[in-house]
Structure formats: structure tokens, C-alpha cells
Design a binder for these strands. Structure first.
Length: 270
DNA sequence: AGCTCTTCCTGAAAGC
DNA sequence: TGCTTTCAGGAAGAGC
């Protein structure tokens, strides 16, 4: 499940492979991934050159010539695969982009939760407008202010992209464990000290994950086919019943806001 | 404002 | 063994 570090890793791969290339043809195979804007994307992208590739939250932004932006969201199971030569369509390819030089970029998405949106320059037409700050850019005072301004359980707050953009279920659980905060604690009642711990835990965990190239939990593979290695560092996510690496207590799994939450009941008290 | 539930989708894993 | 059910989760929308 691609979260901020995985998306960042994909972007690194994309920069190595498709930056500066010009689209010759785009074919959408999964209409819902393109929000049924099949023709406008297929036509709109033709002849455009990829000038820059950036990230906003979990979104990949291709800045194109002609002031267009192509947004790609990997959803749950999205992958970007680059081939230097023509490659047959896979069963789960949601879209295939062919470049003038013969290379191909396949947007592979088994569950079709991904998203492709082409904007004709107006950035306010992209959903990235609604996103909260970047977790690696927000300062501690801003972070404290933000969480004290909300009155909700901290775990769902961390997953809410309009509050903070980029965290998913894995890194949210890992960050809460690191900061020793129970997932059901209410944001405005967390002390400055706790929020400081959370702020630095998020930074630490994301930066380490980016450094190691993303997580492998869901068979994550980067653009060139190399798996990430962060899974070896997961301390609580998917570790129900395992011993807490800090105190040995069994890791517990509960459901918070319709999402599974893994935590140590001794280290993370309510 | 914020909670819960539902929907989308497929494959893996658990249950019988 | 093999079929059936459940589960997983990012995001959006409905209803309370």
C-alpha cells in the first residue's frame, strides 16, 4: 500500500526513466481510474513533454509542457512500471503511456483504486488543493497548533489527508508506537510534549522509509522492479500477538475508524 | 465538526 | 481437497 515513502520512491524511479520524455500515445483501460475522462486524457496528453515530476501527499504530479499537470494516485495497489520497449498489456494495467522514443509506462492497478487526472493548468482543479501540509515540512509549532485545533481520535486524524498529507495505515501505526500514543487518544488533549514526540516520530519513520526505498508489505515494487526493504523495520503494523520490541507485551489489534490499528497496550496507554 | 457505515475492487487467507 | 466467505485498505460520500 503506497504511502508517502513508497510514492517518493516511485518518483525517484520515474525521474530516472521518463523525465523529459514526450508522450506519443495514451490508452486508458480502466475507465474508473481515469474518472471516465478517457478521451480527454488520451487526447490531452499526446505530444506533451514531462518537464518535472513531483509529489504532493501520496499523489504523483507530472508537470507537462503546455502548462498541464497529470496527477497519478496509486490507491491501494497501484504501480508504475517502465519498459524501454513495447510490452504487452497486463490484465491489470489501468493505463499504458507510450513515449516518442518507444518506451512505455504502464500504470498497473489490480484493485483499480488508483486515480489519473489531467488538469489544464488550473491547479485548483486538482484534488491536491484540499490536502493538508506535508508531514516532512510542517514545523513543530504548526503541528501542535494543527492537532490542538481538532477534537478527534489521533489515528483517524493522521489518516485524514486534509489534515496531514501522506500517511497511511502502516506509518500511522508505526509513528504512534514510536511516540507512545494510544490510537484513540483525542488530539486536542495531547500534551505539547506528546505532540512533539509524534512530530519527530513521523519525521524519523518517513525519512528512514524513504532512505530504504519504501515498504514491501504489499509486494511493493519500484519502477524498475526492485522491492523496498522497510518491512523489516515494522514494529507493530501486522504484528498482532508478537512481543512489543520495547517491553515484550503482546501487540494488540483493534479497529479505530473502520481501520485496523496495531499498538502496544502497555507502551501506548489510553 | 466528527463519527460510523458503505462502496469501489481483487486476491489472499481463513473457515467449513 | 475444494468451495465459500471474509478481510485488507485509500478515498469519497451518505447519514446522523
Amino acid at each position: 500500500m503506497p504511502e508517502l515513502p513508497e510514492v517518493q520512491t516511485v518518483i525517484t524511479g520515474l525521474k530516472k526513466t521518463v523525465l523529459k520524455k514526450t508522450f506519443a500515445k495514451a490508452t486508458i483501460y480502466a475507465p474508473r481510474v481515469a474518472r471516465f475522462q478517457i478521451k480527454s486524457i488520451e487526447k490531452g496528453i499526446k505530444g506533451k513533454t514531462i518537464l518535472q515530476i513531483t509529489r504532493r501527499g501520496k499523489n504523483i504530479l507530472f508537470e507537462l509542457s503546455g502548462n498541464h499537470t497529470l496527477l497519478a494516485h496509486l490507491g491501494m495497489t497501484g504501480h508504475m512500471f517502465y519498459y524501454s520497449k513495447k510490452k504487452a498489456k497486463d490484465k491489470h494495467d489501468a493505463a499504458i503511456f507510450r513515449f516518442k522514443d518507444g518506451g512505455e509506462l504502464h500504470f498497473h492497478d489490480t484493485r483499480k483504486f488508483g486515480k489519473l487526472i489531467l488538469s489544464n493548468g488550473k491547479s485548483d482543479s486538482l484534488p491536491t488543493e484540499k490536502l493538508g501540509p506535508e508531514p516532512l515540512e510542517i514545523t513543530l509549532p504548526e503541528f501542535i497548533k494543527l492537532f490542538h485545533s481538532k477534537k478527534r481520535m489521533v489515528k483517524p486524524a493522521l489518516l485524514d489527508q486534509t489534515i496531514l498529507a501522506g500517511l497511511g495505515n502502516i506509518y500511522a501505526d508505526e509513528a504512534l508506537f514510536e511516540a507512545k500514543i494510544h490510537p484513540q487518544r483525542i488530539t486536542d488533549r495531547l500534551s505539547n510534549e506528546k505532540l512533539k514526540a509524534l512530530h519527530s516520530a513521523i519525521r524519523k519513520i518517513l525519512q528512514r522509509a524513504i532512505k530504504t526505498g519504501g515498504s514491501s508489505v504489499a509486494n511493493y515494487v519500484d519502477v524498475e522492479g526492485k522491492p523496498g526493504h522497510f518491512q523489516i523495520y515494522h514494529k507493530v503494523y501486522g504484528k498482532t500477538g508478537h512481543a512489543c520490541p520495547r517491553c515484550g507485551t503482546k501487540i494488540k489489534r483493534i479497529v479505530v475508524g473502520q481501520r485496523s490499528s496495531h499498538f502496544c497496550p502497555r507502551c501506548q496507554k489510553l
